[in-house]
């Protein structure tokens, strides 16, 4: 009896391990500073990476293109962009007062079709724009779904502003109730998440402080979004936090939400979307 219970537990443990190792690495942007004096001639440098540990570099670097939105709504070109083996780095001049958004979005299509009695998968890297070209004439039973990934961070020169927090209506987006550059230990912060422009209700959002490598406890905190898509966190300690939420794709963390009311057809791929942001909590 004891033995069988033990083996069951072991089985459960190894299944959990398999799940966690199968989890996608964490995608992140790490700003060198989140609070600038606002003298007009300051520089921000940003690391962008996809890694298991926060904030270290342990996965291949990504050719992501970051879009920098300035407080006045203009787009600021990045400088000194370098895509390395394990990370990408770029600089951003901080010339205006207010809050800047640094954002990477990646929209992909995945799925399959039948051609001449054979099932074919859509090639990796297919986007909504290239979808039509990716499906050959004569294909039948076309099953596709979209995956929208968004990675963000925010920095502020002088006083925080909110002009960059607009919804484009696609994928998961964060609209702050508490400004992401106004977070402090022991204070409650509220963020609203939208999915395709509508409140993303009942999703699990996780927050993990950086520095994972040198501690035993992951220190992950999680909370569910309410009907308005709002989630509340109270920060236990100062530092950079990775805040993430996703739908679909059997993510190890950040995944959540109830199963769809009508289960998808066995062949139909599940729509995916993910959002990750790095925020600094002041001590």
């Amino acid at each position: 009896m004891l033995n069988s219970r033990k083996s069951l537990l072991l089985l459960a443990a190894s299944a959990a391990l398999a799940l966690s190792t199968a989890a996608q690495a964490r995608q992140w942007l790490l700003p060198s500073e989140t609070m600038f004096t606002g003298s007009g001639n300051e520089w921000l440098t940003v690391d962008a990476a996809n890694s298991t540990d926060l904030y270290y570099y342990d996965h291949p670097g990504q050719p992501w293109d970051a879009v920098i939105t300035a407080p006045d709504g203009s787009t600021v070109p990045v400088e000194n962009r370098m895509v390395g083996k394990l990370r990408q780095v770029f600089d951003v001049p901080i010339a205006q007062g207010g809050t800047y958004k640094i954002s990477i979005t990646n929209d992909q299509m995945f799925g399959s079709y039948m051609l001449n009695g054979e099932k074919k998968m859509l090639p990796r890297g297919t986007t909504p724009a290239t979808l039509a070209a990716a499906i050959p004439a004569g294909a039948t039973e076309v099953q596709t779904a979209e995956a929208n990934n968004r990675i963000e961070t925010f920095v502020t020169a002088g006083e925080p502003t909110t002009s960059v927090f607009t919804s484009g209506g696609k994928g998961i987006e964060m609209i702050p109730v508490t400004h992401p550059n106004d977070l402090a230990v022991d204070e409650e912060a509220t963020f609203q998440f939208l999915l395709d422009g509508k409140p993303a209700a009942d999703l699990e959002v996780v927050a993990i402080p950086g520095g994972i490598r040198y501690r035993a406890d992951l220190k992950q905190i999680s909370a569910k979004t309410d009907a308005e898509g709002k989630v509340r966190f109270t920060w236990p300690e100062a530092g950079m936090y990775w805040v993430s939420v996703s739908i679909g794709g059997r993510r190890g963390e950040g995944a959540g939400g109830p199963p769809p009311a009508t289960p998808p057809q066995p062949e139909a791929p599940e729509r995916r979307a993910s959002y990750s942001m790095t925020v600094e909590v002041q001590g």
Binding site: F36, T37, Q282, G283
Partner: peptide, 8 residues
């Protein structure tokens, strides 16, 4: 420039 280092 370093006034912001008094972060609180």
């Amino acid at each position: 420039k370093w006034l912001r280092d008094m972060r609180q």
